[in-house]
Write a protein that binds this DNA or RNA. Sequence first.
DNA 1: TTGCGCGGCGAACGATCGTTCGCTAGCATA
DNA 2: TATGCTAGCGAACGATCGTTCGCCGCGCAA
Lengths: 191, 191
Amino acid sequence: MSDDPDYLGRLRDYYARHRVLPSYSRIGGLLGFSSKASVAKLVGRLQAAGYLEFTADRRLKPGRRFFERSVAGSKVAAGFPSAVADDLQDDVAIDQDLVRHPSRTVLVTVKGDSMIDAGLLPGDRAVVERRHTAAEGDIVVAIVDNESTIKRLAKERGRFVLKPENKAYPILRPKELEIFGVVVGSYRKYR
Amino acid sequence: MSDDPDYLGRLRDYYARHRVLPSYSRIGGLLGFSSKASVAKLVGRLQAAGYLEFTADRRLKPGRRFFERSVAGSKVAAGFPSAVADDLQDDVAIDQDLVRHPSRTVLVTVKGDSMIDAGLLPGDRAVVERRHTAAEGDIVVAIVDNESTIKRLAKERGRFVLKPENKAYPILRPKELEIFGVVVGSYRKYR
DNA sequence: TTGCGCGGCGAACGATCGTTCGCTAGCATA
DNA sequence: TATGCTAGCGAACGATCGTTCGCCGCGCAA
């Protein structure tokens, strides 16, 4: 029952819908302000907190923390479920969390169920950092016979092999093995 | 060596950097136009093609196709891996893909392996949209005995039950069942 | 060769923008 | 009670916005 207007939340919702920030007067209308001056002050606060920034030409843009999400803990106090949200541990920006080197990072759609025991289902997006070397145990995107495939990189008698994480599939022992990149993360949408 | 100015591409680059579209005059400067009228016409073309849209209050915003990227399959042309890289390039697409209603969205860390067959491993982050109702078949965060738990919502003789996706776990038939939110996505980091 | 569509130019215009300033009301501290 | 701080209001202002209109030059098809 908080009467916190949650201005930031509403701005984020607007942005999620439109991928653009509205003008000060629209923000005012959106948040219930009747004066643009109030908006200016709010923007100042949000900017100081790192949620908003300005481009070089003074156009409003989302700041670093704009895309952060709060992480809820698992404790639930006294059967009151909103307490789950109060148990917030910290804020995480999904993108920054998953992508460390944007210019070298690519998304690859997972095909097939050969990595299902590693939690990679068909249709999942794998976050792949491109590079030509990988370590034993890494999940890699490899090029075999002009096809890309996602497997666990393992060693067998001093040779690198590709291990599916699904007992129904055999270990691959390709003559030529080219590493396309290393899987550093993955995500999926439900429904 | 195309002399195609690739206006759209440069607009996308700007947007990727700033998460905001510039004004007509800035677009002009950016793309090498000296007249805003030219920009207006270009915008008209891009709008007709579905790359740009306007909000209800006529503010320029990215259109449906603005975030399109060529969807690369698993084929790798002539052993040249960069073909795979033509997939999604945009780091931020991840967040925007997963989170539809920022103000109602929370991250919850998955505990235990009871949902492992649904691809939810311990430590995974579940993207949860907070709400008190859910449909049969949804993966939900529910509150049972003052603890939050992630399970598949199912129906059994007209009653809602919580189904783990792991044969080692029993179906939960709690007397009291409170929905905390619906899992709309998940992601994980490797290493 | 003429005509026409298209992409871009340049200037002008009213609308909207964000800023600024002084003001009020509430709340916490002293 | 007095003091300040914070959030918001309301009006005015110059700057910038996006639109509009007429114009030009090029390429292509008749």
